[in-house]
């Protein structure tokens, strides 16, 4: 049901955690099956994607809150043809709006492309791809 990966390597998101240091806690959290969202310690603004400074108050002090993992589908799209050797089509990509506010691109693990609807309640479901890579996916909320 979920996106099917081929045996070709997936471009590794941890690399972005190295290039962009403010993204490191997010990806470290995913390895431990936690959705850690950056929050400004001074004004409380939620920042996603993470960044080195709060654009609201210019504080460089931030913390990471664990998101509930609950949200709704805000938008989606479906590939009928594979755009890349790592992925088998057809598959859908969903844009989930978390209850805490940030929107994340992901895939549904249990809903067929034709059954995906904007507004559908969902919750996070972690997907361990290999020893190095765990991804955050979503399933229909009960």
């Amino acid at each position: 049901m979920t996106i099917q990966y081929t045996d070709k390597p997936i471009p590794h998101p941890a690399l972005w955690g190295i290039i962009y240091r403010s993204s490191t806690p997010f990806w470290e959290g995913i390895k431990e099956k936690k959705l850690l969202i950056q929050k400004c310690k001074d004004c409380g603004k939620i920042l996603h994607p993470p960044r080195p400074m709060c654009p609201g108050c210019h504080s460089t002090e931030c913390e990471h809150i664990e998101a509930s993992g609950k949200g709704t589908i805000y938008s989606y799209t479906t590939y009928s043809k594979s755009p890349h050797k790592s992925f088998k089509a057809p598959y859908s990509v969903v844009l989930v709006e978390l209850d805490e506010g940030p929107r994340l691109i992901s895939n549904m693990v249990d809903v067929k492309p034709e059954d995906i609807e904007i507004g559908m309640p969902v919750e996070v479901a972690f997907d361990k791809i290999d020893d190095d890579l765990t991804l955050y996916k979503f399933k229909k909320a009960g």
Binding site: I19, Y20, S22, P49, P50, F87, Y91, L104
Partner: peptide, 10 residues
């Protein structure tokens, strides 16, 4: 940094 949050999802 944004592509890191989208590419692995296909």
């Amino acid at each position: 940094p944004h592509y890191g949050y989208t590419f692995p999802m296909g």
